[in-house]
Write a protein that binds this DNA or RNA. Structure first.
Length: 422
RNA sequence: GUGGGAGUAGCUCAGUCGGUAGAGCACCAGAUUGUGGUUCUGGGUGUCGCGGGUUCGAUCCCCGUCUCUCACCCCA
């Protein structure tokens, strides 16, 4: 308790055995994404601050007050990524992917950073896994991603899922709607909360999303975005819904679903789970289309669709005993004395090369203690290697569950491995 | 940024209407001179988060502070 150094607020360690649950989630995603044709992209945690300011939007909460931004020794303003879409877009443009292939599918996994107050399911350093598809304007890809996610959560055992979808309109639709909304809200300005008064100027769509009661009242009867959608947007959204239906995915249209990031255009979606210990959060993944982002960052006009899922949140409602995901020990070798430990270490080395998981008791501990430890490690077999065994060259491999023992020769690695696998 | 709750043994917590502290779990040893998940016996000084105040005396009361945690906002 003295003067020890602790981890930074809101930034957590993941230790065994809990890390095994993370590995399970990651392995499931990796395998699933591979079947859908996604390749992994890894980008630096640090990016130029301007990337996020331009990509995510100056007026968003993330850019306004949640970024870890600082100057490096060369006086360049750098920011620890608060999300990955902007970084992926930067990489896509920087490597001229547009000119190399018509369709690009990327997935990623890594830590993101946002300066917020931590609570259950929300941390300052948190992990996201996400996918980005570039080059497809058609609505079927939107539905494909959503369906892929429902499959993911189902296979992970995350229950009580709700898929919410909406469309926020294309770059052509939005200015008209925005004007109509502002015209409707301006007379009611006095009823709005402080944040919303500001949003009225910076990002009026967000007022629709406000939880303050007076704002909710003021918003009642506001013009609906769906009445301001152009024909192309309508057709696209209808296509998404039609494809989801064909895939057997039940999705609820939520008119108030407005993502907090500026780059979204057209389809937006969110999947919530009522399962597990998510606390006040319920969103476990969110995403949408961002057809204008690449161009706004200086790239070629490129349609794009992506999502990000919160790893900690997925884990919170995944359940499952961490120990069940840990690889059990095949053979535990109990020792007595240094000669025994040397011989046991060599034997373990050979057995591990043969593919077994082996643990040697390197400490000078009592036999009873060693067998207890073998139990704690969930070892399938135990082999006591003491003076008698060293002298005779033979030993007994004990099945910890049945307590049956079989004779083995210490120099017969293949034989021991076979017996341990039986 | 705002508001609740909590900080006592490695972990989960109890407790003292103010007289410097306990349980369970875990861990170790022995009963069983080399064989486990049960049982029995033995084994714990821990700045009672930190600083100050009141008091003969504070882990307990008061003030401050730090940390953790939950929630609001917002988000994955």
């Amino acid at each position: 308790m003295a003067d020890t150094i602790q981890s930074v607020k809101g930034m957590n360690d993941v230790l065994p055995p809990d890390s095994a649950r993370w590995q399970h989630l990651e392995a499931t995603c990796r395998e699933l994404f591979a079947r859908y044709g996604y390749g992994e992209i890894r980008t630096p945690v640090l990016e130029s601050t301007a990337l996020f300011a331009r990509g995510i939007g100056e007026a968003t909460d993330i850019v306004e007050k949640e970024m870890y931004t600082f100057k490096d020794r060369g006086e360049r303003s750098l920011t620890m990524r608060p999300e990955m879409t902007a970084g992926c877009a930067r990489a896509y443009i920087e490597h001229s992917i547009h000119g190399k292939e018509p369709v690009t599918r990327w997935w990623y996994c890594g830590p993101m950073f946002r300066y917020e107050r931590a609570q259950t399911g929300r941390y300052r350093s948190f992990w996201q896994i996400g996918c980005e598809v570039y080059g497809i304007a058609e609505p079927t890809i939107d539905a494909e991603q959503i369906a892929m996610l429902t499959e993911l959560y189902t296979s992970l055992g995350v229950g009580d899922l709700t898929v919410l979808i909406n469309t926020v309109g294309s770059a052509e639709d939005r200015p008209a709607y925005r004007a109509a909304l502002v015209a409707f809200l301006e007379p009611k300005q006095d009823a709005l909360c402080g944040d919303c008064k500001r949003r009225l100027v910076t990002n009026p769509l967000r007022v629709l999303d406000c939880k303050v009661p007076t704002c909710k009242d003021a918003v009642a009867g506001a013009p609906a975005l769906r009445d301001h959608l152009g024909e192309r947007t309508r057709a696209h959204f209808a296509g998404v819904q039609r494809t989801l239906e064909a895939l057997g995915v039940e999705a609820k249209v939520d008119d108030n679903l407005v993502r907090g990031l500026d780059y979204y255009t057209g389809t937006v979606f969110e999947i919530t789970s009522a399962a597990g210990a998510l606390g006040a959060q319920s969103t476990i993944v969110a995403g949408g289309r961002y057809d204008g982002l690449l161009e706004s960052l200086g790239g070629q006009p490129t349609p794009a669709m992506g999502f990000a899922l919160g790893v900690e949140r997925a884990l919170l409602c995944m359940g499952g005993d961490a120990a069940a995901f840990v690889r059990p020990i095949d053979v535990f070798i109990a020792t007595r004395g240094e000669d025994s430990r040397v011989r046991a270490t060599a034997l373990a080395h050979a057995l591990r090369k043969a593919g077994l998981a082996v643990e040697v008791e390197h400490r000078d501990a009592g036999m009873k203690n060693q067998f207890r430890r073998a139990d704690a490690l969930r070892a399938r077999h135990a082999l006591a290697l003491g003076e008698a065994e060293l002298a005779s060259g033979g030993a007994k491999l004990k099945d910890m569950a049945t307590r049956q023992e079989v004779e083995v020769r210490l120099d017969d690695v293949a034989g021991i491995a076979a017996a341990a696998r039986a």
